[in-house]
Amino acid sequence: MKSIKKNVDMNKAARRFIINGMTRPLLSVSVAIALGLSNLAEASTQDVEMQSNWQPVASESLMKLPANLIEKRIQQDFEMSPMAQALLAVEQQVVGQSEQIRSLQSLIKEAAKGDLVEERVSLVQLKSSYLDLMQQSQALRQEALDKKQSLYQDVLSQMLLQSGKANNKEFVRLQQQQEKARQRMQSVIDQVDKTIMHEGYDKPSPYADEFAVNLDKIEQLKAAISQHKASLAPTIDGVEVTAQEYVRQLLMQASGEQSLLDQESLMLSYMAKLVALDAQALEYEIAYQPQEDGSLTNAQMSKPAQSVDLFL
């Protein structure tokens, strides 16, 4: 990853050097555009750094959500963050510039070779600034992914901590004791009620009465909850999984995204190299083309053989 980034940076420097060297003597308009664009890019980089804050935390409220909602909550939080807004702004600039590049490309395609030099220089400059923007977007996406990964790891460690507590020997023993006690109570509950009736109490207590009514309603509610689609356990490819497994899957997805980002960085470095080569080729072409005002160039130097007839 680091080597790819270094490669992109080196290509970026090469592009800047070649483009600046080419434009300074020849194309003042293009230079102005280039400077404007590069200033804009630098300013927007600073803005992006200042505004791209997103500090997600594995808070208690996040941990209490069902596993499949945790992912949605994190995504929602990211979308509302200044970082997401910055990323969106960069993406919009990328779209705008890609349209400009396309229109310039179609214009140059139709022109004869050697014509529209200024436009061709502008195209190289536009491509260069487009790659700058792409790199900014890449950096933001990488930062967001890093934060997401570390958040998922925090969530997973808290889940493990909680399950460790739930598996605590003391707690499990108490839980088993409570379950046994309930079973013992359930086995004699009718008998106790009958005994109370025999002792002269002709109706159950308000608690027992209301509890029985509520119990029936609770069963109905439980059934409705278990059938509700929002309460279904998280699934991966249609298979129900535990919350921990689900978060582990999210971490694996993040690794996948990381590897795709690495691949995209490599693509960007190759694109940067192509732009640098374009700029170099264009620079040679401009430097060695015949001058329109008829002035002499090195290629047209007089040779003695050509001037012999002057002396005969």
Partner: peptide, 29 residues
């Protein structure tokens, strides 16, 4: 005895007791 019937059932059905690993709860069960 009648009051205890209700009280005992309330305790046995109370899920919150497990949330507090108290000596009182441990001793009761």
């Amino acid at each position: 005895q009648r009051q205890l019937v209700d009280m005992e059932r309330m305790v046995l059905r109370d899920e919150r007791l497990l949330a507090s690993p108290s000596r009182l709860v441990k001793q009761a069960f």
